[in-house]
Design a binder for these strands. Structure first.
Lengths: 150, 150
DNA sequence: CTGCATCGTGAGATAATATATCATCGGCCG
DNA sequence: CGGCCGATGATATATTATCTCACGATGCAG
């Protein structure tokens, strides 16, 4: 349902007065069609197939836009990017919804979850330190169910 | 109390059969004496003052060792390293104790906390997904108490 | 219509972060 | 001695990200 996701992204941007240009849309498409988190230069390589002139800034600018719009996330531990699994759901509470990643050591699969228990615990811990949370990076490494049973 | 921390680190390594060589000890010292998270190349520059031959691998190898020993942590969002505030406390439950970082957007101050509520919430969320946690990166960005009151 | 600001993009260079590879040296153990 | 292993030296290279300047399109004000 990548097409659907792209159309939803377009609609979401419009609602916010942002512009999902063809280039940005294409980069988003490349991220979404990847099965795993993709690095910026991997995206660049693919982008070059249809846009020979593409350079690093081409990709990074598009990624920055998509990150701001909450359409993708960055995995800091991997320096890689993934599509946000619920860019739609995000609408309800501002487009930067809390989220966490589960990264399997064995197979590399990464799954995005939105666990409010974690979000609340983080809020509470920060508050105790007099700290106002703007955003939280949570990347959990371990072994996924499939790999554990293998 | 940097000297104390260094001696404790040495003792901890010995207990584990690891060797805190002079080089590693020096790098740990540089990390500890920095007030904020330090990048690998900043460490390298300082290291070169006393070891002109130092190269990137020199620093990265030392950092890898210190990370393994739980004597320092890496801030993934900043690509920078900080001393672990309770390398000692860590002894009780394996040297990779759960921890989280509070990173202030305004002043850049970063504080390490060890909040078991967060750790448990992460455990619980992962378990629900059939995922076995090995380690979790939690980096919370926002505004610290000092900056908020300014 | 013209001038001007803004936004998105092109293009090239460069910066910042991290790793690969091969050689060397010293200790330790058989 | 001889061989292995952990640590370091030294060089090169890979990977990730940003800076800078320029250009075209769009929209709006005068």
């Amino acid at each position: 349902m990548r097409e659907t996701a792209l159309r939803e992204a377009e609609a979401a941007c419009q609602r916010r007065g942002a512009t999902l240009t063809p280039l940005r849309r294409q980069v988003l498409g490349l991220v979404l069609e990847a099965e795993a988190p993709v690095g910026a230069y991997a995206l660049l390589d693919r982008l070059k197939m249809s846009r020979p002139g593409a350079a690093p800034p081409t990709v990074y600018r598009a990624l920055d836009f998509l990150l701001e719009q909450g359409l993708i996330h960055k995995l800091e531990r991997l320096n890689a990017y993934v599509g946000c699994t619920d860019a739609g759901h995000a609408e309800g509470h501002g487009h930067h919804h809390p989220h966490q990643f589960l990264i399997c050591r064995r197979c590399g699969t990464t799954v995005e979850i939105t666990d409010h228990g974690v979000a609340h615990a983080i809020e509470a811990a920060a508050r105790r330190a007099g700290f106002a949370v703007a955003s939280a990076t949570v990347e959990i490494e371990g072994e996924c169910a499939r790999c554990a049973s293998a």
